[in-house]
Every structure is written in C-alpha cells, then in structure tokens.
Amino acid sequence: SDEEKKVRDQAKRLGVNTEQLLKWARRQGDEDLVRIVERLLRS
C-alpha cells in the first residue's frame, strides 16, 4: 500500500530498520504510524 511504502521510505531516511522505526513511532506517540509499522512487521 501507499502507506507502507511511505513507512519504508521514512525508515530508510532515518537509517533504521522496521523494529527501530516502531520504537521511534511509539516515542513520537504517532498511533497511525505505529499501526502501519506493526502491520508491516506482521506481513
């Protein structure tokens, strides 16, 4: 999905993997991002 591509691009920009991005999203309190990243991790 578009959202998932955006998440992957953001992880690349930050230089982190998906698990690290999830931690980062939780720290930001970004519920939408957390949900998308969790979906990516499960897929």
Results as ranks from 00 to 15, higher is better:
Val34Glu: 03
Arg27Met: 15
Leu41Phe: 03
Lys12His: 06
Gly15His: 07
Leu33Val: 02
Arg35Asn: 08
Leu21His: 00
Gln10Leu: 15
Lys23Asn: 11
Leu33Thr: 01
Leu40Trp: 10
Arg26Asn: 04
Ala25Met: 06
Arg26Pro: 01
Gln20Phe: 06
Gly29Arg: 05
Gln10Asn: 05
Gln28Asn: 08
Asp2Gly: 07
Lys5Ile: 06
Arg39Phe: 10
Val16Glu: 02
Glu38Ser: 03
Ile36Leu: 13
Asn17Pro: 07
Glu31Lys: 12
Ala25Thr: 02
Asp30Arg: 10
Val7Leu: 08
Arg26Thr: 07
Asp2Ala: 09
Leu41Asp: 00
Asn17Val: 11
Lys12Arg: 09
Asp30Met: 13
Val37Thr: 01
Asn17Lys: 07
Asn17Gln: 03
Glu38Ile: 10
Trp24Arg: 02
Lys6Gln: 10
Arg42Met: 12
Lys23Gly: 04
Arg42Ala: 12
Gln10Arg: 08
Trp24Asp: 02
Val34Trp: 06
Lys12Gln: 07
Arg27His: 12
Leu33Trp: 03
Arg13Lys: 12
Val37Arg: 00
Leu14Thr: 03
Ala11Val: 10
Gln28Val: 09
Gly15Ile: 07
Val16Leu: 15
Asp9Gly: 04
Glu38Pro: 00
Arg8Val: 09
Arg8His: 08
Lys6Ala: 07
Gln10Gly: 04
Ser43Phe: 12
Ser43Ala: 11
Leu21Lys: 00
Val7Thr: 03
Leu40Gly: 00
Arg42Leu: 10
Gln20Gly: 09
Gly15Ala: 04
Gly29Ala: 04
Glu4Trp: 15
Val34Lys: 02
Lys23Met: 13
Trp24Tyr: 03
Arg8Gly: 06
Asn17Ser: 13
Gly29Thr: 05
Leu41Gln: 02
Ala11Met: 15
Lys12Ala: 08
Asp9Leu: 07
Glu31Met: 14
Ala25Cys: 10
Val37Leu: 15
Gln28Phe: 11
Lys6Asp: 08
Asn17Glu: 04
Val7Phe: 08
Asp32Val: 12
Leu14Asp: 03
Arg39His: 08
Leu21Met: 03
Ala11Asp: 03
Asp9His: 04
Ala11Gln: 08
Gly15Ser: 08
Asp2Phe: 10
Asp30Val: 11
Glu19Leu: 12
Gln20Pro: 01
Glu19Tyr: 13
Gly15Asp: 02
Val16Trp: 15
Arg35Trp: 06
Arg42Cys: 14
Arg42Phe: 11
Val37Asn: 00
Lys6Met: 14
Trp24Ile: 06
Leu14Arg: 03
Asp30Phe: 15
Gln20Val: 04
Leu22Trp: 04
Val34Ala: 05
Val7Arg: 05
Arg35Pro: 00
Arg13Cys: 15
Val16Met: 15
Asn17Thr: 14
Glu38His: 02
Lys12Phe: 09
Asn17Arg: 05
Arg42Gln: 13
Leu41Val: 04
Val16Ile: 12
Leu41Lys: 01
Lys12Asp: 08
Gln10Lys: 09
Arg42Glu: 10
Trp24Thr: 02
Gly15Cys: 03
Leu40Cys: 01
Lys6Gly: 04
Ala25Pro: 01
Gly29Pro: 02
Arg42Ile: 07
Asp32Thr: 10
Lys12Val: 09
Glu4Pro: 06
Arg39Met: 08
Thr18Asn: 06
Leu33Arg: 00
Lys12Leu: 12
Val37Ser: 00
Arg39Pro: 00
Leu22Phe: 01
Ala25His: 01
Gln28Leu: 09
Arg27Val: 13
Leu22Thr: 00
Ser43Thr: 13
Gln10Thr: 12
Glu31Thr: 09
Lys6Tyr: 14
Glu4His: 09
Glu3Arg: 13
Leu22Ser: 00
Gly15Leu: 09
Leu41Asn: 01
Leu40Glu: 01
Val34Phe: 04
Leu21Trp: 04
Lys5Gly: 06
Ser1Arg: 12
Leu33Ser: 00
Gln10His: 09
Trp24Pro: 01
Lys23Cys: 11
Leu21Val: 01
Glu19Asp: 09
Ala25Asp: 00
Arg26Ser: 06
Lys5Arg: 09
Ser43Glu: 12
Leu21Ile: 06
Arg8Tyr: 14
Glu38Asp: 02
Arg26Val: 11
Ser43Met: 14
Val37Phe: 05
Val37Met: 05
Val7Ala: 06
Arg35Leu: 05
Arg13Asp: 02
Gln28Met: 13
Ser1Leu: 11
Asp32Lys: 10
Glu19Ser: 07
Ser1Pro: 08
Val37Tyr: 01
Ile36Arg: 04
Glu4Ile: 12
Gly29Cys: 15
Thr18Trp: 15
Ser43Leu: 12
Glu31Cys: 15
Asp30His: 12
Lys5Glu: 08
Arg8Gln: 08
Glu38Tyr: 03
Asp9Gln: 06
Ser43Ile: 13
Arg42Asp: 08
Ser1Ala: 07
Ile36Met: 12
Arg39Asp: 07
Trp24Ala: 02
Gln28Glu: 07
Leu41Ala: 02
Asn17Phe: 13
Ala11Trp: 13
Arg13Tyr: 08
Ala11Tyr: 08
Arg35Cys: 02
Arg39Ser: 07
Gln10Phe: 15
Lys23Thr: 08
Glu4Lys: 06
Thr18Leu: 15
Gln10Ala: 14
Lys6Thr: 07
Asp30Thr: 05
Gln20His: 04
Arg39Val: 06
Gln10Pro: 05
Arg27Phe: 11
Ser1Glu: 11
Lys5Ala: 10
Ser43Trp: 10
Leu33His: 00
Lys6Ser: 07
Leu14Ile: 03
Ser1Met: 10
Val7Asn: 03
Leu22Tyr: 02
Leu33Pro: 00
Lys6Val: 08
Lys5Val: 07
Asn17Asp: 08
Val34Gln: 02
Gln28Pro: 01
Glu31Tyr: 11
Asp9Thr: 05
Gly15Met: 04
Gly15Gln: 07
Glu31Gly: 06
Ser43Lys: 11
Asp2Arg: 07
Leu22Asp: 01
Arg39Ile: 08
Lys12Ser: 06
Leu14Pro: 02
Ala11Pro: 04
Glu3Leu: 15
Arg8Ala: 10
Gly29Ile: 14
Leu40Lys: 00
Arg26His: 08
Gly29Glu: 03
Leu21Thr: 00
Val34Ile: 11
Asp9Trp: 10
Gln28Ala: 07
Gln10Trp: 15
Gln20Glu: 13
Ala11Glu: 09
Arg13Val: 10
Asp9Cys: 04
Arg13Trp: 11
Arg13Phe: 09
Leu22Arg: 02
Leu41Glu: 00
Leu33Ala: 00
Val7Gln: 04
Ala25Gly: 00
Asp2Val: 09
Leu41Ser: 01
Ile36Glu: 03
Trp24Met: 03
Gln20Asn: 06
Glu3Met: 14
Asp32Asn: 13
Val7Met: 04
Trp24His: 02
Asn17Ala: 10
Leu14Trp: 09
Trp24Val: 02
Gly29Leu: 12
Leu22Met: 03
Ser1Ile: 08
Thr18Ala: 12
Lys5Met: 08
Asp2Tyr: 09
Leu21Tyr: 01
Arg35Met: 05
Leu33Asp: 00
Asp9Ser: 04
Ile36Thr: 03
Asp2Gln: 11
Leu22Ala: 01
Glu19Thr: 10
Ala11Lys: 05
Leu14Glu: 03
Arg26Met: 14
Arg27Asp: 15
Lys23Ile: 12
Arg42Trp: 10
Leu21Asp: 00
Trp24Asn: 01
Ile36Asp: 01
Glu4Arg: 08
Ala25Phe: 09
Glu19Val: 10
Val7Ile: 11
Glu19His: 09
Leu22Asn: 00
Ala25Tyr: 04
Asp9Glu: 11
Arg26Ile: 14
Val34Arg: 02
Ile36His: 03
Glu19Cys: 15
Arg8Ile: 12
Leu40Ile: 12
Glu4Phe: 13
Arg27Glu: 15
Arg42Ser: 12
Gln20Leu: 09
Arg35Glu: 12
Arg8Leu: 14
Leu33Cys: 02
Leu14Gln: 03
Asp30Asn: 13
Glu3Ser: 10
Gln20Arg: 04
Arg13Ser: 05
Leu40Thr: 01
Arg26Trp: 07
Val16Phe: 15
Ser43His: 09
Arg35Ile: 06
Glu4Val: 10
Glu3Asp: 12
Glu31Gln: 11
Gln28Arg: 07
Lys5Pro: 03
Val16Asp: 02
Glu38Leu: 14
Lys5Ser: 08
Gln28Ser: 09
Lys12Ile: 09
Ala11Phe: 11
Asp30Ser: 07
Leu14Ala: 05
Arg35Val: 05
Leu14Gly: 02
Arg42Lys: 14
Val16His: 10
Asp30Gln: 07
Thr18Gly: 07
Glu31Ala: 11
Asp32Trp: 14
Glu19Asn: 08
Val37Ile: 15
Asp30Trp: 14
Leu41Tyr: 02
Gln28Lys: 06
Val37Glu: 00
Glu38Gln: 04
Gly15Pro: 03
Val34Asn: 01
Arg27Ala: 15
Val16Tyr: 15
Ile36Lys: 05
Arg26Asp: 02
Glu4Thr: 08
Ile36Val: 05
Gly29Gln: 06
Leu33Gly: 00
Leu14Cys: 06
Glu31Trp: 15
Ala25Trp: 05
Ile36Tyr: 08
Arg13Ile: 09
Arg26Leu: 14
Asp9Phe: 07
Glu19Met: 13
Leu14Met: 09
Arg35Gly: 03
Arg39Cys: 15
Glu31Asp: 10
Glu3Ile: 14
Thr18Pro: 12
Ser1Trp: 10
Trp24Leu: 03
